[in-house]
Design a protein around this nucleic acid. Sequence first.
DNA 1: GATGAAACGGATGGATCATCCGTTTGCCAA
DNA 2: TTGGCAAACGGATGATCCATCCGTTTCATC
Lengths: 200, 200
Amino acid sequence: MELLSVYAGGVTDSPLRKDAVRNRQRIIEIGRQLVADGTPIQLNEVARAAGVGVATVYRHFPTPQALIEAVSVAGLETLIQAAERAVQQDDPWTAFRDFLVRFVDAQLLDAALSSVLSTPTATLPGTAHLLDELSSLFDKLFVRVRAAGLLAPGITLADMTPLMCGVAFSARMHPATDTQQQAAAGRHYLDVVLNGIRTR
Amino acid sequence: MELLSVYAGGVTDSPLRKDAVRNRQRIIEIGRQLVADGTPIQLNEVARAAGVGVATVYRHFPTPQALIEAVSVAGLETLIQAAERAVQQDDPWTAFRDFLVRFVDAQLLDAALSSVLSTPTATLPGTAHLLDELSSLFDKLFVRVRAAGLLAPGITLADMTPLMCGVAFSARMHPATDTQQQAAAGRHYLDVVLNGIRTR
DNA sequence: GATGAAACGGATGGATCATCCGTTTGCCAA
DNA sequence: TTGGCAAACGGATGATCCATCCGTTTCATC
């Protein structure tokens, strides 16, 4: 998979100037730190921390949500890789389950990713493209378990992302003292849902 | 169940003056409308719409979250009534399931309620009291299904609220055209989870 | 109806937001 | 190289939003 993200936000755009690329990276890096700390994103503050003018930040990311999307790109790419590995798996159910474990885990580790996955509307073209790629891979995994008759009737592909984001939401609500425990809760709730959608 | 909410926020407070009660009601009513419309709550704007000074709003509700809590009281009381009815039910599982259907439905119909249930930390004493009452009733329902051996081992009472809020979250993500469809999605996802936590 | 406490209102200083425009930087053709 | 120009930059600034403070009004009590 190519890493196109050093450019503006997609393939079609004319390449950014060198300084623009540098600034964009700096801004994203600051954004990553803020998101990780759970600090609400203020674009003026991001500019200050990145040692860059306010207008530069706004030019690249008109809204905090746009910056969050950009921050989520790394996590999105990792997830896509996980999905690609999963489609190589022989056993449909194992492939499906393993990917979903990643899907939930990734959300718990990366608030930006979680936000993007829970919000179907991408504002940056780069994100939209990655989401498409991810959902196409997910489709492959889903179709296989469905064909294998492992899923209860009534469960559709369109149900899966909401369900997984719901699981992540539940895990985040769970009173956990550390990341470890929260991941365990995520795994626990995922098991509940997997149990619930499987044929018996 | 008494409706204490016309007073400041609890039993122990000295009764509010007549004008204070009136203003408080007005503010909550405006808050209710804003929450229903999905409009983000701005306390200055609430004051304007309620025909009341800004300070009055801030005195009653120091933060938007506090106002949201107050707005959620009605829904919380309704939910408590539903729980009281459920504990009267003979069949443990039916009682449990029927209450959870209400629990999810109520969240989908009332964003304020949803917010309060997803945020364990109550800032108004009145809300804290109602949440206690609700969770005590919920406990009764849970203990019965547990005792009847209807729940998979590993599922605890502490899992239930996160799971139900997760279900509501999933339903809200589901691309629904109207309230009807969203309620259907909520019911669908609830069935998945109920399936997942039940013994087989 | 006099008195004190409770509540009110909105002016206002402070914080945050996001645009605009004069300046700088990088790119490319000559 | 260098000259020209488009792209990108930065930060001052007006607009908006937030929340406190204090002089005034209203209510309850005697």
